[in-house]
Design a protein around this nucleic acid. Structure first.
Lengths: 191, 191
DNA sequence: CACTATTGAGACATATTTGTCTCATTATTG
DNA sequence: CAATAATGAGACAAATATGTCTCAATAGTG
């Protein structure tokens, strides 16, 4: 049984998504701007999120959920390292906004301190990449750290494709995926 | 003959660089934060830049200069498309702060409107990539738009390597370069 | 239609940021 | 050392952002 009506839930969601979008590119943006982006009055905004920190907290929770779910679905243990890597990249591309948000606050003081979960997930990914090094599917010249890092960069690139580029989201996703696989593969002709 | 003393020039430079660094990740940051990052009082800050827009303007000018200079030095016309592309990437890696700043304001209202220069430079790069498509050195599956875009993403990735990654700037630069070339190459084994 | 939930407009006090000044102190240089 | 340049501390008013309210209007539902 939901504690809130569907309408309220939709509104909350809209504000949250607008918040992620706006604050990801400008963390200090006035809350009025977030409200406007959500198509809602400042009053309504504060009804759902008492203040800035409440909004950030909710955004973090969403990001953590999306992140964990994507990694889960990628089934990192199956197949070669490269195959698992490909699945992971594909899954991550389906949660761009929350992950770009997550990324944008990564180093800052807004980043949630607790998350031991995150560490654990990072470990799984690192293990998957190392497996790829060992089974010969992933380029030994590229470090585990760098490959992880470049995945985030590509997510960012897809999310912020400049308007001038005139690429569809679909094309961008496609080519980003190809770029990531090809770059990471020991034998790039398989990409 | 300089209009200002060397000391003043150094201070101006320090503030400008601090501004680029701070505002690139938080465009709305209080100017006091920029001043602090530059190791300067708020008074001094305003002595050099009357207001926020003056700082942004100067940052834009620096970015345009760095950008144009880097492209210039890459000698886009020489060699195969891929060779020129490699030179370009290497040059760009040497101007990370200004270019990341440039990137961070790309779509926003802060972006300078005029720059026909930018268009021209973009044309040169596009031409270089097309040449790479024709001479068979660059992967025909990846569009000119996407390759350009992914270069920016890698610059971003190198600039914001998370502290946890424990990679030196040098290693990051190295691996980013390898990643870019490998991804773009028609025959990635040459990377 | 009546009833309730959700919303927007706007007033409001408070807090933060901004840009301008003045004045005393600290480099820098000839 | 003396003269000039550069800075920091802090006061100040104006502008902007924040969070809390109240009240009237507007969905949405039975």
């Amino acid at each position: 049984m939901p504690e809130t009506t569907p309408a309220a839930e939709r509104t909350r969601r809209a504000i949250l998504e607008a918040g992620i979008e706006v604050l990801a590119s400008n963390p200090g943006a006035p809350l009025a701007e977030v409200a406007a982006a959500a198509g809602v009055s400042r009053s309504t905004f504060h009804r759902y999120f008492s203040d800035r920190s409440a909004l950030k907290k909710a955004a973090n929770e969403l990001a953590v959920e999306d992140w964990a779910a994507a990694v889960q679905r990628a089934r990192l243990g199956e197949g070669t390292g490269l195959e698992a890597y490909r699945r992971l990249c594909a899954e991550l591309m389906d949660h761009l906004p929350a992950l770009v948000w997550w990324m944008s606050i990564a180093g800052s003081e807004d980043a949630p301190a607790e998350y031991q979960d995150e560490d654990e997930t990072d470990q799984q990914i690192a293990a998957m990449l190392r497996r790829g090094h060992q089974d010969g599917s992933i380029d030994p010249e590229l470090s585990v750290e760098w490959i992880s890092n470049s995945v985030w960069a590509m997510l960012y690139a897809v999310y912020f494709i400049p308007a001038e580029a005139k690429m569809s989201r679909f094309d961008a996703r496609q080519q980003a995926l190809r770029t990531l696989i090809k770059a990471a593969a020991a034998d790039p002709s398989t990409a």
